[in-house]
């Protein structure tokens, strides 16, 4: 698993620029599904044919990033965020553009208070000393992602972009494990989740599944001084009851909980106030699609060192496998 996670998390793919990551995923699953295609917005859709219910699993393949907005005369790059990037987490990090050029994220030294830190007071330095030189590598509109390796330590994966390449890894693992299926399963690697759940809705509109499950990461409440939250790393797959966008449909939620109990799969229940995942746009599409979520608990979300538990990932795979094979 770690090799798959490393390859997926290390591949470039910010929101709206998913070509490279889509290519990597396509290679991994090609030949293992009955249909494989890319839709207009760039969602990668892999279908295992069946005569039962049509079930959609969605994991987004885009990651957060930064976009160059203006090049200073002395070559420094001003930038804005793609998705929920924290100025604090970005500081002192390296970023990498699609062409492989790396930059350092720094801030204006006159800045006194950390609370005054925002992107307009920050810049990216790629080591050039003029606008012309910088423009040879980076133009306004070019998007960079965080640069950070992937490690496995103490049963945890630590990496950039586990949100949501770990979800993509889960779907790829499921495709590998499945042979004949009764239900028709659409594995959808969605685009532009980080900028407003934009890919999942259109994919669901085209597929019109009977049930849908978003496979994404979720925050935990198990770190020093964090906000109260009943999710812990290593305590199992998180069955989503509610997030900021969706109240899970009883059909999906109850089925997931029943299956976890029946097959003795470790799970926990997720109630989140803010933020939403792909279920948010799927469940209001095409007259309403019963949707829910199975989440991988993740610490330090949207930082270059996101952390998930390898055991939780296994439990998520088990639970989703039971779900898509269930015939009732």
């Amino acid at each position: 698993m770690i090799e798959l996670v490393r390859e997926l998390a290390g591949t470039y793919g910010p929101s709206g620029r998913e070509d490279e990551i889509r290519g990597v995923i396509r290679k991994k699953i090609s030949g293992k599904v009955d249909e494989l295609y890319t839709d207009t917005l760039g969602n990668l859709i892999a279908v295992k044919k069946g005569n039962g219910k049509r079930i959609m699993l969605a994991a987004h393949m885009d990651e957060i990033g930064v976009v160059a907005t203006y090049i200073e005369e002395n070559g420094f790059i001003r930038f804005s965020n793609i998705g929920g990037v924290s100025p604090v987490f970005s500081l002192g990090q390296r970023v990498r553009f699609a062409n492989g050029v790396c930059g350092c994220v720094c801030y204006e030294e006159k800045l006194k208070e950390p609370k005054d830190l925002n992107f307009s007071k920050m810049f990216i330095d790629i080591g050039t000393n003029s606008r012309e030189r910088t423009m040879e590598y980076v133009s306004p509109g070019d998007i960079a992602v965080f640069e950070a390796g992937t490690i496995e330590q103490n049963g945890r994966y630590i990496s950039k972009a586990l949100d949501d390449r770990i979800g993509c890894a889960v779907l790829i693992e499921l495709i590998g494990q499945l042979n004949e299926v009764k239900n028709e399963i659409a594995f959808v690697f969605t685009v532009q989740e980080e900028v407003g759940l934009r890919g999942a809705g259109t994919a669901a509109y085209a597929i019109k599944p009977d049930l849908a499950v978003a496979v994404d990461v979720t925050n935990t409440g198990d770190t020093p001084g964090c906000n109260p939250l009943s999710i812990e790393l290593g305590k199992g797959a998180a069955v989503m009851i509610k997030d900021g966008r969706t109240i899970s449909h009883p059909l999906v939620k109850n089925k997931l909980i029943d299956l976890a109990k029946r097959f003795d799969i470790q799970y926990q229940l997720e109630v989140i106030e803010k933020g939403g995942n792909d279920a948010g746009s799927i469940h209001t599409t095409a007259g309403g699609i019963p949707s829910g979520g199975v989440s991988i608990p993740c610490r330090y979300m949207h930082s270059p060192c996101e952390m998930v538990d390898a055991g939780d990932v296994k439990n998520v795979v088990k639970l989703l496998k039971a779900f898509i094979q269930s015939e009732d």
């Binding site: 409440g221 109260p228 939250l229 009943s230 009851i241 509610k242 109240i247 109630v271 106030e273």
Partner: peptide
């Protein structure tokens, strides 16, 4: 409201619906 967690001695934490 929606239950988000437990505290000792019969208390529940909640969020809003």
């Amino acid at each position: 409201l929606i239950v988000t967690g437990y505290e000792k001695n019969g208390f529940l934490r909640v969020s809003n619906l």
